[in-house]
Design a protein around this nucleic acid. Structure first.
Lengths: 210, 210
DNA sequence: GTGGTTCATTGATTTGGCTCAATAGGTGCC
DNA sequence: GGCACCTATTGAGCCAAATCAATGAACCAC
């Protein structure tokens, strides 16, 4: 990507601020924009007609949002915290992609990573117990955060309901499992949204070798 | 893609036959080849250390196999029926991809479709009952087969165990659920590997609006 | 035909996680 | 402070699916 490309990119991006709990886009909506998350945390989800919700992923700063297969979004997206988005019209983006191989290559890599993560999540949802699921979830968050957090202390921006809908559990089971893990000494819970993993090896073991 | 490209493509592909039950590649193995399935049915799966298995997808004729994010396969693959593969060395493939935009574009589309399917599967695994899962599975297979089968008669090449591991259930639950659906008249089971859906609308309804 | 093997079905029982219900912490507002 | 609101925790009972166990059906080898 050279200077000319960067200029063209700058010309089609704009900015958008979202409050916590606000919908960024809904599943099935015609996809007009793709986004890059400048700040904040986002949940992706799918719904059944009766309201059951499955969260398919959590995104944070730097993540790309709005990769679509056809012309509609395959899932909904909501802000969990105040979110700043860098938005691009998909028509412009597609034209840009057609021209700039490195961007296209990056997109392909991203979707392959996302796919590998989705398969890991299927293993978790289909075959792991609540305990293993929660530990795997914590380890995964820790790995992601590792870059800027040297210690095994973890901030969870999402609610218990969000965690439950991500793991295919109920809020009560999530809460009970957190408590049980705390009582066993596998984790510490200084407050609701903070977890410390003092014995990482034991956690990895108990998570089903994540 | 022009004639020159096709020649280069032809030069790097070769052929491979696989017997039912044979492993094509294992999760974690260094990825040397990507494949296109010429004939037969393949299951993709991930394993936990204690042997629990989650099937993450079934592939058939024409499907592409071996899209990897890093240098190792993210899942294992096994033949369910006799399989004929068209194989390509990944090193060659990568070089080819770097040069030919339409191939790269196709790959991106495929991985986006696969990702959308993965998210649908997460919804199914996390939030649907055994009954809804099985019906969704049948409808999905029917949609895929629709092209060459005008009727709502479906061939299931995989075993009950495979279906169970795909849906995150046990073989007994799959069998019981099949029987229950048959007794309700929602499906017919002429033999173990054949299902007929006489009332498609009722099935769609009961599957949780797949 | 008989025994062995594999896969599917059916039955009996158990259990992990869900449902329903109550209680406890926080936080903000008046 | 006192109250309302929201989220999380804890308790009691229940149920869908798992587990354990037996039987049936199809296929092959001898």
């Amino acid at each position: 990507m050279d200077f000319k490309d960067i200029d063209r990119l700058a010309a089609i991006v704009s900015h958008r601020d979202i409050d916590p709990g606000q919908v960024i886009f809904e599943e099935g909506e015609t996809a007009e924009y793709a986004y890059n998350i400048s700040r904040g945390e986002v949940r992706l989800y799918k719904l059944l007609p009766d309201g059951r919700r499955q969260i398919t992923g959590f995104l944070g700063e730097g993540d790309f949002l709005g990769l679509v297969s056809d012309s509609t979004y395959a899932y909904g997206a909501e802000a969990m915290t105040p979110v700043e988005l860098c938005s691009m019209r998909l028509t412009n983006l597609e034209r840009l992609l057609a021209d700039i191989p490195p961007v296209r290559e990056k997109l392909l890599d991203m979707s392959r990573d996302e796919l590998a993560a989705a398969q890991e999540q299927m293993l978790l949802l289909g075959r792991k117990t609540a305990r293993e699921q929660l530990l795997s979830f914590l380890l995964h968050r820790l790995d992601q955060a590792e870059s800027d957090a040297p210690e095994s202390k973890l901030h969870l921006p999402m609610s218990r309901t969000d965690i439950a809908d991500y793991l295919g559990l109920t809020i009560e089971t999530v809460s009970r499992t957190f408590t049980a893990l705390r009582d066993e000494g596998l984790i510490e819970l200084p407050d609701t949204h903070t977890v410390v993993l003092p014995e990482l090896e034991a956690v990895r073991e108990a998570a089903g070798a994540f």
